[in-house]
């Protein structure tokens, strides 16, 4: 039950229900769909990246569980205004927290609010829900195809 409350803490429920930066960007320089075939979670991330490789604006649309929506919401808050190298570094930090589960204190600090998603690691079947938007962001920056969790 404690793990469950850790997973569904207030901030996650709140971001899941009312995701920040939700919606489409009119003239994105980059966009990327993400799809998790196991759950049917799908989202699309829109970015405006300027000539200096700084993320000027970021938004997302989609449908999914509280974990995937909250995660995407926190991601957009975190990377807005950052250089894409920094953003990619944060994706690595996030993966270190949930996928390889070997994360430094500094990385947790860098993740800020998104570090509350650490509880997801106790739920292997849900990790992909949390990482979906982060994959999508990484592929968008690299200009790669649709991100899937498979």
């Amino acid at each position: 039950m404690n793990e469950l409350l850790q997973l569904y803490q207030q901030m996650i429920i709140d971001h899941g229900k009312c995701p920040r930066n939700f919606g489409e960007l009119e003239n994105p320089t980059h966009k990327q769909k993400g799809f998790n075939p196991l759950c049917g979670d799908q989202l699309e991330i829109f970015l405006i990246i300027d000539d200096n490789d700084v993320i000027q604006d970021v938004k997302f649309t989609g449908e999914g569980c509280a974990i995937s929506m909250a995660s995407a919401s926190m991601l957009t808050e975190l990377v807005k205004g950052k250089h894409i190298d920094k953003a990619n570094g944060l994706v690595e930090d996030f993966n270190a927290m949930l996928v390889t589960q070997d994360v430094s204190d500094e990385a947790m600090e860098r993740l800020g609010k998104a570090s509350v998603l650490e509880g997801v690691k106790e739920y292997p079947s849900r990790i992909k829900c949390a990482t979906l938007s982060w994959h999508a962001l990484k592929n968008a920056c690299a200009g790669e195809g649709e991100a899937t969790t498979e």
């Binding site: 569904y8 196991l38 759950c39 979670d41 569980c65 079947s125």
Partner: peptide, 26 residues
């Protein structure tokens, strides 16, 4: 107001095994 996967995770922690998803019928 709650996604199927969140329901499944919470039920699982109650010891109830149910399925959430598209059930191979997209």
């Amino acid at each position: 107001g709650v996604h199927a996967h969140d329901v499944a995770t919470i039920l699982d922690s109650h010891g109830v095994a149910i399925r959430a998803g598209h059930h191979c019928a997209m």
